[in-house]
């Protein structure tokens, strides 16, 4: 377990999420894929936090929680935003369902032309 493997794992999950969000018809699956992408980013941030302290630590020997745990803080906010996003996205999906009768993204082309 080192930084490269963690980052590559993060990249793989991100790519899978991206691919899924581009190709899936079902909007719920697209939301799931977005969550995967969020998590990929969080994994990368935590990995940096664990293996690679910020440049400040390299220059000075001061170890403070601010420096070491900044990645964790990032992850906290990522999760918070992800939760908010899921709540909104599901509300939107339900609205779409009310209007269109289904939740397929392929029917949502009212902006056409």
């Amino acid at each position: 377990m080192n930084l490269e493997t963690v980052l590559i794992l993060s990249g793989i999950i991100f790519t899978i999420g991206l691919y899924g969000s581009l190709t899936k018809k079902n909007s719920i699956v697209v939301v799931m894929c977005l969550e995967l992408m969020f998590n990929a980013v969080a994994i990368a941030v935590i990995g940096f936090s664990r293996f690679r302290p910020p440049q400040v630590l390299v220059d000075s020997d001061v170890l403070s929680p601010l420096n070491v745990l900044s990645g964790h803080m990032m992850a906290v906010f990522v999760i918070a935003i992800g939760a908010a996003e899921v709540a909104l996205a599901l509300a939107l999906i339900i609205s779409i369902y009310k209007i269109k009768g289904n939740i397929e993204l392929t029917g949502l082309n009212n902006l056409k032309n």
């Binding site: 719920i28 939301v31 799931m32 969550e35 899921v86 709540a87 599901l90 339900i94 369902y97 939740i103």
Partner: peptide
């Protein structure tokens, strides 16, 4: 989140 999504699956 997973519970919410599982709930939304009911729309499918």
């Amino acid at each position: 989140v997973s519970v919410l999504i599982a709930f939304a699956v009911m729309l499918v």
